[in-house]
Write a protein that binds this DNA or RNA. Structure first.
Lengths: 250, 250
DNA sequence: GAGACACCGATTGTCAACAATCGTTTCGGG
DNA sequence: CCCGAAACGATTGTTGACAATCGGTGTCTC
């Protein structure tokens, strides 16, 4: 997830951005697992940063929906129940579908070229096994496409779900089989953009998201279904998702 | 109602919740206008709270997309260009439509009853001119309906847009004509739920959101179109909206 | 008089010490 | 042996002072 630091102006003194980025990567690459505690003091030592900075980073991650916090109890990597994951993926499908529907058709040649370039780099990194770069280029590929829909609000919502589900997709990101398959699917998308139909692209983009979900579910097995319910209760009114209550709100 | 503190666990030491709530209300009722600066010291004095608390409140409002911040320059009430507002409303329409499509049909009688009750209270408050309560009940009405779609992710996304657009809808919230019309539309929705069709409800829910947008646009006139572009640049990589990559910004 | 530079006030960002809170363990009584 | 209460250790939340930064103003030179 490339460069939040460069685009997001405020909460990112260089060091803070680094910490956020690092934690994000530890989550997506599975070194930090869901429900794992994030103790401020430990992180403070590990990164050699003041606890204040760590707190800011956690707040930011919380805002991104990656971390859940409970007052006086600390932060943990956010965990999703199977039901929640299903709901999230339904929305992801809806939004991505909408994005594809809004891409001006036939596709702009410059955009197509850009996607092809990204895909080339992507393929190379897959070969080389550079997971970190694969991740970055994967994001770039999809968001270059989604941004063509020309609706910032839509792009932001997809981005939000994208980030939230980092911890879910961590099960597929390291799987060579899945990586190869994703690469092929990207190639197929480009083909549809170049000489195919919008409907064909729609099918591809939609089909593209489910394998990671299946992998996640399999990793959690049936076990997760009951367990997660406990956790859901344990997390209480999880503050991570900026859930909001019936405040006056308006 | 009024108990943000009880439902949202972490970021809401009672006092903090109050400040956030208060600022939110000042924005929706138009006492704080878009682009208005929010100086920490001033707010600290006004609320008699420590600057630290004010900072937290601003961070929270930023997370909600109501406030934009720039490093070392402070916070301001977030402003939307006309183009952005259009994009946001398109998404609002999409999501609300999806919610209606997901409500189990025929409608659950208990839910219908609940909506009717809310609508009764709502109507009374409209008569009484209690704007604050009107707002609260309006939210409650819509979210009771949206939650019936049974997808937390969807509800949260609608909620997010709902909050973000508080500053937009402030133009209609005080208009008696609009209030009466909204009340009638709510009644019509209940009628469709009770004995009508899903398609009828869809049309109503969709039509319901546009008047506020029109009012906003009229209030800004053609003037806003050019002006807002300057502002967009001035706000730079606005950090409020958690905007993503490559400063699309244009 | 115009432009560049340096200074200054206003404002935000950072830090380290202190206070409050939670979960757990231990101790005493039944 | 079991149960409840109090004290402890581990963590998080809060505060006030200090440092860094930005925009603007005044001045000096050409």
């Amino acid at each position: 997830m490339a460069n939040l630091a460069e685009t997001c102006d405020h909460p990112s003194v260089p060091e803070l951005a680094d910490i956020v980025q690092s934690l994000k990567e530890e989550i997506i690459f599975g070194r930090l697992l869901p429900r794992e505690r994030l103790v401020e003091g430990e992180l403070s030592d590990r990164y050699g940063a003041s606890r204040h900075l760590i707190r800011s980073a956690l707040t930011e991650l919380q805002g991104m929906g990656l971390v859940a916090r409970r007052r006086n109890k600390g932060a943990m990597v956010r965990d999703f129940s199977v039901e929640e994951v299903d709901e999230i993926y339904e929305m992801r499908a809806l939004l991505q579908r909408e994005a594809v529907l809004r891409i001006p058709w036939p596709i702009d040649r410059a955009l197509l070229r850009e996607l092809q370039d990204i895909h080339c780099s992507y393929s190379r990194c897959v070969e080389a096994g550079d997971l970190r770069q694969v991740c970055i280029l994967n994001n770039k590929f999809h968001f270059t496409m989604f941004e063509a829909a020309n609706n910032r609000c839509l792009t932001e919502m997809i981005q939000r779900i994208w980030t939230e589900t980092l911890g879910i997709r961590c099960y597929s990101i390291g799987d060579p089989i899945w990586l190869g398959r994703a690469r092929d699917e990207h190639a197929a998308m480009i083909a549809q953009l170049a000489t195919g139909s919008r409907e064909g692209l729609l099918r591809l983009v939609d089909a593209h998201i489910w394998p990671a979900l299946e992998l996640y579910k399999r990793a959690h097995g049936g076990w997760h279904a009951s367990k997660s319910r406990q956790v859901a209760r344990h997390q209480g009114g999880v503050a991570g998702g900026r859930r909001m209550s019936a405040g006056v709100e308006s």
